[in-house]
Design a protein around this nucleic acid. Sequence first.
DNA 1: TATGAATGAGAATTCATTCAT
DNA 2: TATGAATGAATTCTCATTCAT
Lengths: 216, 216, 216, 216
Amino acid sequence: MLVTDKTPPDERLRDAGRSQNTILAAARDEFAQYGLGGARMDRIAQRASLNKRLIYYYFADKEKLFQAVLEQAYQHIRQEERALNLLGLKPAEAIGKLVEFTWNYYLAHPEFLTLLNSANLHKARHLDDSTQVREMNSPLIETLAEILERGRKDGSLRGGIDPVQLYVSIAGLAYFYLSNNHTLSAIFGRDLMSPKARSQRLHHMREVILGYVLSA
Amino acid sequence: MLVTDKTPPDERLRDAGRSQNTILAAARDEFAQYGLGGARMDRIAQRASLNKRLIYYYFADKEKLFQAVLEQAYQHIRQEERALNLLGLKPAEAIGKLVEFTWNYYLAHPEFLTLLNSANLHKARHLDDSTQVREMNSPLIETLAEILERGRKDGSLRGGIDPVQLYVSIAGLAYFYLSNNHTLSAIFGRDLMSPKARSQRLHHMREVILGYVLSA
Amino acid sequence: MLVTDKTPPDERLRDAGRSQNTILAAARDEFAQYGLGGARMDRIAQRASLNKRLIYYYFADKEKLFQAVLEQAYQHIRQEERALNLLGLKPAEAIGKLVEFTWNYYLAHPEFLTLLNSANLHKARHLDDSTQVREMNSPLIETLAEILERGRKDGSLRGGIDPVQLYVSIAGLAYFYLSNNHTLSAIFGRDLMSPKARSQRLHHMREVILGYVLSA
Amino acid sequence: MLVTDKTPPDERLRDAGRSQNTILAAARDEFAQYGLGGARMDRIAQRASLNKRLIYYYFADKEKLFQAVLEQAYQHIRQEERALNLLGLKPAEAIGKLVEFTWNYYLAHPEFLTLLNSANLHKARHLDDSTQVREMNSPLIETLAEILERGRKDGSLRGGIDPVQLYVSIAGLAYFYLSNNHTLSAIFGRDLMSPKARSQRLHHMREVILGYVLSA
DNA sequence: TATGAATGAGAATTCATTCAT
DNA sequence: TATGAATGAATTCTCATTCAT
């Protein structure tokens, strides 16, 4: 790595953007692990190896910090969804790929589920203020609508499917299984997270969703 | 006033059972509204119009109180599910009725969703200790297994359906929609809880699940 | 002192009224010494030898505590003023006695001045809520009005004196001298609090006020 | 742009004197509004639209800044008092004019009262260090002494009046009324700052003071 | 002269929990 | 069984002040 005159002596210091990102990452982990109520500002500072005061300097308070974390999380998943390039696939394949992606994303980003969880508990109060989030989500639904329309036209998909309902269903099938995995594992006395169990769940989800969207 | 063994419980000034129930109800509301972390013992005492010390007397601490609330909640939904008498119906009807019941129960008992939510955040640590809950849930899965088997035999349902996967899917379709309702409403800018939107969701859920279980 | 069965084992403990009074006294001293902004809840607890949490238990927060202290202070001075029994004296004597009393009270209760000071800085926001204080003060003005009226009738005092203006003037002559004593001492380079200086000030005040109220 | 020694101060981007004055003005407003304890260095910087660090650069710390503000305030009122040219008037007129000036100055400069207030709370600790202030005040007392002496000689004023006592009384009559105006308004339930009430107060003050100094 | 980034020591307030009766 | 008083350990947030450039 090139070190020039402009490189600060200590790489971690006196870089506002970097500090903010460090804090955001630390906060994301803390909120994911403990929820909004259980998260501790002290621990976030520790995780970030930064002074606690700096968090307030950049993010005003815990609530605002949570909101910032939430926005970043949405931004990330939407970005990845965009990268799927669903419109480049055949309708049925696109739906299948979205199911698969959703499952894998939730699996790889358990913090996303917990953040959603906390946001729900607090009645999405953090989103009402945030126009960002809404704007980031509309495109996905539009894409889905376009896919459904194409499928209806080429006869591969049945008609009359509401893209919002479909999106919520795909997410719900994955979310409930993963988010409640501990509860469910305890209740049913069987490990829902073993590799085999996971692949079975994905298989089941595809069957359910594709069975619904494919024209008979 | 003479208090004898025969005095009905609800006429005594000091009634252990009644106090415990009052506390449980108050705690359920508080946990549902604020989550485990956000719940306040003070407020629970206030809601119950009972001394805070009494909560500790009966339930030892906040965690144990939460666990008691959770157990009661599971007990309640399982009891209602039993009352459906699903084994008295034709297989396909039984599945449809379970979908409908799940949706309506979640709708009528939003506190159940929030309690689940909190339990998940805390990794079901409250259930591991509780053999009660597991025992309460097995019967449902057995019932579902029996229904699926009957349907397979009489040709009304396809074979190879895992009752646990099915149950999780039914619950997930309802849970995600309702639990995230604020987030989703904010994101999609449309009211998901209007009477019309609700009935559309139930319709959608039936289509998805029945489309999956019915033999082609 | 008689110790009965009802006497708590440790005299300082578990007596709500006593604890509240202890806190009030400690808070009064702290606020008087440091002002509202400079006062420390920690120090108040220490002064009272009571747990800090207890202050919040009884007084909710710092502002409310300050208000309670302020009310008590007003209550005290009004009570002492009542005890003067001014209506039992001849008009001119009554005015003279009020001047003297005001001077001596401020001298003996410097905390009263500081509390007033703090209250002023915060624009009497603490009094707006408090109907108590207003009610406690009206009687004094009424008494003064009665005295002035009697004096006018018997010819000992001039007419047309507004009791509020008079009261404010008496207080102001004492208050400014004492409240600014440090500033003034520094500015004029002379000790304004020596016994001689004090008696000179009282003498001066009597001359000014009596010169004003006595009929020519 | 060329910056030379001849460049007028207010055209330079970096002007030490101007920055200091901007800070002083901002600090005066902040201290006046919130008191010494309640003032915030952050807000002062914001009010001045200057970097917080600069305040420390010029004024070392909050206490010193307060002292500087206080000195400037005294300087200002003394300067105005000098401009009255009291020695050019007849003794009685001079006293009357001083009463009027004091009242109007306090009215026009409420921040002066609050600053005094804060200084008092902190026991004039800020003045002990400051020889400036003392020097600025002596002239006024000397002027007053001269006026009183002249009046005694020409028979218009009574003898034996201590100029310090008189000055304190004039100030006290105005100060208490204005400084406690909120408290008093709340207590007496009448607006002490209406135009009418103000002119009545000034009238009253003149009567009290002139009644005292005029020879019988 | 000027600035944005960073900090340690505290501040008010909160909270689950225990004490004494 | 029931209660009001009391507490210690946090917890969020604040603030004057300093650092590095």
